[in-house]
């Protein structure tokens, strides 16, 4: 297995820590001159999603994590697994509940998602930044209302609940930012 030295640390580097693949979010090299140089890092554990700070002695080595991101189109779920396909090679990969997590509510057929693979198996499924989903349930809004007066909750076909403006109606397709879970606009027809 490959190792990284602290001098190779940079944002985006994937390393193993406590038996779990981690992503380095920030790295700062500190050389105070009165004690040994060290690296301060902010790290996200990829499986649990926890972020933590860790200090390393400069020159230390750490095991590299065999982690890669790959873009795959979402196909369908069989209730146990969520199936994705590489649009070029047609190779299929199934992600389990743990990898899909809360993002299940943003999975739209044929949308290209980013799957983070660890030793070849998906550990995180990241949906596109924006998805377009149909509203299946929402209270009828008052006539004449325009944008932005607090809005109302709307249930989408994937089960997600987002706040939408009062003028948006059941049956319409809305564009949602998956990072914040907020309504962005009505979908372009």
């Amino acid at each position: 297995m490959a190792n990284y030295s602290t001098n190779e640390f940079k944002a985006g580097l994937k390393i193993m820590m406590d038996g779990e693949p981690c992503n380095i979010l920030e790295n700062e090299y500190v050389k105070p001159g009165k004690g040994q140089a060290f690296n301060r890092t902010k790290i996200r554990k990829l499986v649990s999603g926890k972020t933590l700070e860790k200090t390393w002695r400069s020159g230390e080595t750490v095991e590299a994590a065999d982690v890669m991101d790959t873009d795959l189109a979402y196909l369908y779920t069989d209730g146990e697994f969520w199936h994705f396909m590489n649009n070029e090679t047609f190779e299929q990969i199934a992600a389990d509940q743990k990898a899909v997590g809360d993002n299940v509510k943003w999975l739209v057929e044929n949308d290209v998602c980013t799957l983070t693979l660890f030793n070849g198996s998906p550990i995180v499924v990241t949906p596109p930044n924006f998805v377009e989903i149909e509203i299946v349930e929402t209270d009828p809004g008052l006539k004449g209302d325009t944008a932005g007066t607090g809005g109302k909750p709307a249930t989408l076909s994937t089960g997600a609940v987002v706040r939408v403006p009062l003028f948006v109606q059941k049956g319409e397709v809305v564009k949602v930012d998956t990072r914040s879970g907020e309504y962005a606009s009505r979908a372009q027809k």
Partner: peptide, 30 residues
């Protein structure tokens, strides 16, 4: 642990001074 493991001779009287200064420095910085 990594600081201690990196000392070529941890019996040396300077070893404890080095360890202490490095630890104080990292605590000061962080």
């Amino acid at each position: 642990g990594s600081l201690r493991a990196n000392l070529a001779d941890d019996e040396n009287t300077h070893a404890s001074v080095l360890l202490k200064d490095s630890i104080l420095q990292v605590l000061f910085s962080t």
